[in-house]
Amino acid sequence: MEPLDVDGVRTVQVGTGLFLLGFLGLIPFWAPLEEAGRTWLLWMCLTGVGLGLLGMEYCKRRRRFRAERDADEV
């Protein structure tokens, strides 16, 4: 049985979206987070969004490369 041919774009999109929702959901709680010394949670979510955008571009390029490679084999 052949493994599924998953390029990872959808997975990275979902993860990036969840980080964005986390960031947007924490913005109203900026003051309590700052008082507790937990503003790093906001920056972690924002970093997740940034890395997710980079990962999305990587996965899209990988998908294009694989499609071109498969077209050349035919």
Rank of each mutant, 00 (worst) to 15 (best):
T11N: 10
T11M: 10
Q13W: 07
Q13Y: 08
V14S: 08
V14H: 08
G15Y: 04
G15W: 05
T16V: 03
G17T: 07
G17M: 06
L18S: 08
F19M: 15
L20A: 15
L20Q: 13
L20D: 06
L21K: 13
L21T: 11
F23K: 05
L24S: 10
L24W: 08
L24G: 04
L26A: 13
L26V: 03
I27G: 04
I27W: 14
I27D: 03
F29R: 13
F29G: 05
W30A: 12
P32L: 07
E35Q: 14
E35H: 06
E35A: 14
A36R: 11
G37W: 03
G37N: 07
R38H: 13
T39Y: 01
W40C: 01
L41R: 09
L41I: 06
L42T: 02
L42Y: 04
W43I: 01
L46N: 08
L46K: 07
T47K: 04
G48S: 07
V49D: 02
L51M: 15
L51G: 05
L53Q: 05
L53W: 09
L53Y: 07
L53D: 00
G55N: 08
M56W: 12
M56V: 01
M56Q: 13
E57G: 08
Y58I: 10
C59E: 07
R61N: 11
R61W: 08
R61Q: 13
R63M: 09
R64H: 07
F65Y: 12
F65D: 12
